[in-house]
């Protein structure tokens, strides 16, 4: 019989640290009944070949994300500040050659 109304296990986002010293990366998501189960599943699904030395699992509904509609205005404040980049500044010619 169909189990259409059976509820899925909650969805978790999986992040792993590929190597010591590297930042965590998003791997994908999975369903799991609880956090412990999510960690074990994440190891089996996303780290069968030592892809990670550390794993985070986060309930997907706990993530707050910017929306594509925000994109323009939300990130605007950064786009008119060229003085935050080194290219904005000039350096005496003699020094430039050496760097």
């Amino acid at each position: 019989m169909s189990e259409n109304n059976e509820k899925d296990w909650p969805l978790w986002e999986v992040f792993y640290q590929p190597k010591n010293g590297k930042p965590y990366e998003h791997a994908g998501s999975l369903h799991a009944s609880d956090a412990e189960n999510a960690l074990q599943n994440a190891r089996d699904v996303y780290a069968r070949r030592n892809e990670g030395i550390g794993i985070w699992v986060v309930p997907s509904d706990q993530i707050t994300a910017s929306t594509p509609e925000d994109m323009g205005s939300f990130f605007d404040p950064a786009s008119d500040k060229p003085y935050r980049h080194p290219q904005f500044y000039s350096v005496p010619r003699a020094v430039k050659k050496r760097s």
Binding site: E3, E6, K7, D8
Partner: peptide
Amino acid sequence: AKVQDEAGHGLYLYSAIETLGVRRSELID
């Protein structure tokens, strides 16, 4: 190991498709 990988492939793909707001149980059903 190979067969286990195939299970993994299925799971990567289901999770990619679910980002479009369709439920896993629906797809499997």
